[in-house]
Amino acid sequence: MSKLESQDILCYIDSLLKYSNYSRAAQSLYISQPYLTKVIKKIEIELGCELITRNKLPYRLTEQGKIYYQYLTSLENSYAKLIREISYVSDVGNKVLRIGILPSLGSYLTPLFLPAFVDLHPACTINLVEDLPEKNEKRLQNNELDFWIGQNSSSISPNLNAVSWGRHRYRAVIPRCCELYQKHVAVIPEETFDISTILNQRLILTSKGSAIRKQIDQLLSVYKIQPQIVMESNEIRTVLNLAQHNMGVTIVPESVHIEEHASEYNIYPLPIDKISLDYFIAHHGERKLTSVDHDLIHTFLNHGQQCAV
Rank of each mutant, 00 (worst) to 15 (best):
L219D: 09
H184F: 09
I236K: 11
S233R: 06
R213P: 02
Y35T: 04
L140T: 03
A116E: 08
Y30F: 05
L47A: 06
Y59A: 06
S233H: 09
Q7G: 05
V309H: 13
H283L: 01
S23F: 05
M1D: 07
N200M: 09
S15I: 02
H245Y: 06
L128N: 07
E44P: 03
L219M: 04
P111T: 14
Q218K: 15
N246A: 03
L102I: 03
I40L: 11
F113L: 05
L4P: 02
I275Y: 12
Y181G: 06
P115I: 09
L145A: 08
Y69R: 12
N77G: 02
E134R: 13
R176V: 14
I216T: 13
H245T: 11
L97Y: 06
S32A: 06
R176T: 10
F280A: 03
L29Y: 07
L75M: 12
T197W: 03
F117G: 05
M247I: 02
S90K: 13
P115H: 08
A172K: 03
V230Q: 06
S23M: 01
S276W: 15
A172Y: 01
Y79P: 03
L242G: 01
S210T: 15
L29I: 02
E134P: 00
L29D: 02
P122N: 11
T37A: 08
K66S: 09
D14C: 03
T197G: 05
K41R: 15
L105Q: 08
K208Q: 12
K81H: 11
R213H: 11
L160A: 00
N152A: 00
I156E: 01
S90Q: 14
L132W: 07
